[in-house]
């Protein structure tokens, strides 16, 4: 080699192209032409299309924030992508539901200790998700809620704590709703006192010998908040994840299944009662004056009767 012949520097292929090259080597028959070239062409098209879409969106909504996050990449450090934060937000929705339900129960005068335990457990889980995604704003909001809960615990005995917590919650929820956005945010904004369906289950489980509030907290910490999740859980998995003794996990699952079956039976009985009241209304309609209405109501009654019959067959009602 002479000075006139500079050494040929072979740059290593980007890892993406190494994978494509291996694919070709592994299965030449499946490859259709130069995969690397096709990949580059496709990338160019993808980016061109996305850039056009973003430009069009900017014209329609000039004040909207640009979708691409600024990622501060230190050299040699592979930063997490936006997908990490997106995933944590999606998972967070389950815990936001819990905070909504528990807050409602608390404000309705329900079991405060149980409700607070659920709120604190949900906040802890949300905190872990926010921390994993380096989501400072989310962490800040959760810290604020932690402070409200702590203040409520201290002030419960003086009688004004409940009112102050209610006010704090009503101030916090809109901020949190704005942050999470989307359907989750809308749900939080519309938070009104609705039935906290799963609270009766936890009251029932507390009465089971060997359970109690501390062990219930282990269920919450493992993400087991709903009757559906608990009744469909494998007791061995539940014991492994929560640390409950195996025999207790089995009892929790069995008790929850029994509780759900009883709830369903009650729902079916209630529906039958409503159906009887509805047929009385249908019969009271004047067939000559309101023939269309009478026909529609009769059709609706028949459809509902079939549904209730199927439900009765699926859930044996005593």
């Amino acid at each position: 080699m002479s000075v006139a012949d500079p050494p040929e520097i072979v740059m290593p292929l980007p890892r993406a192209l190494v994978h494509l090259a291996r694919r070709h080597e592994r299965d030449p028959s499946a490859a259709d032409g130069d995969e690397a070239a096709r990949f580059q062409e496709r990338l160019a098209r993808l980016f061109a299309r996305e850039a056009e879409a973003q430009a069009a969106a900017a014209v329609d909504a000039p004040d909207a924030p640009t979708p691409d996050a600024e990622v501060s990449n230190r050299p040699g450090v592979v930063a997490p992508s936006d997908e990490l934060r997106a995933v944590t937000h999606r998972i967070s929705s389950q815990f936001v539901d819990v905070i909504s339900q528990a807050s409602t129960e608390l404000l309705r005068g329900g079991d405060a200790d149980m409700a607070l335990a659920r709120i604190e457990s949900a906040l802890a889980s949300l905190g872990r998700l926010a921390s994993a995604a380096d989501d400072a704003r989310h962490t800040e909001l959760l810290d604020a809620m932690h402070e409200h809960v702590a203040a409520y615990r201290e002030a419960r005995s003086d009688g004004r704590g409940h009112a102050r917590f209610r006010d704090a919650l009503r101030a916090w929820l809109p901020d949190y709703a704005t942050y999470v956005g989307g359907a989750m945010g809308d749900k939080l904004r519309r938070l009104v006192e609705f039935e906290a369906d799963d609270m009766p289950l936890f009251r029932h489980l507390e009465s089971v010998r060997g359970i109690g509030p501390r062990r219930l907290c282990r269920l919450y910490a493992a993400g087991l908040f709903t009757a559906e999740a608990i009744s469909e859980a494998d007791p061995a998995d539940m014991a492994a994840v929560t640390g409950l003794p195996r025999h207790l996990a089995e009892r929790v699952v069995t008790e929850t299944r029994g509780w759900r079956a009883e709830q369903r039976s009650q729902v079916v009985l209630e529906m039958k009662g409503r159906l009887m009241r509805f047929i009385a209304v249908v019969r009271g309609l004047d067939a000559e004056r309101d023939p269309e209405l009478r026909r529609a109501a009769t059709d609706a009654y028949e459809a509902m009767r079939l549904i209730v019959t199927e439900l009765e067959e699926d859930h044996v009602v005593g």
Partner: peptide, 30 residues
């Protein structure tokens, strides 16, 4: 409980950086 995650850099192809996010999911039924 939730997931495991790390990002992986597949290099730069043309003008574009390619990154892969690896996730796991929790396996228990609930």
């Amino acid at each position: 409980l939730f997931f495991d995650y790390f990002p992986y850099d597949l290099g730069t192809v043309g003008d574009y950086d390619i990154k892969v996010d690896f996730f796991t999911v929790p396996g228990q039924s609930f």
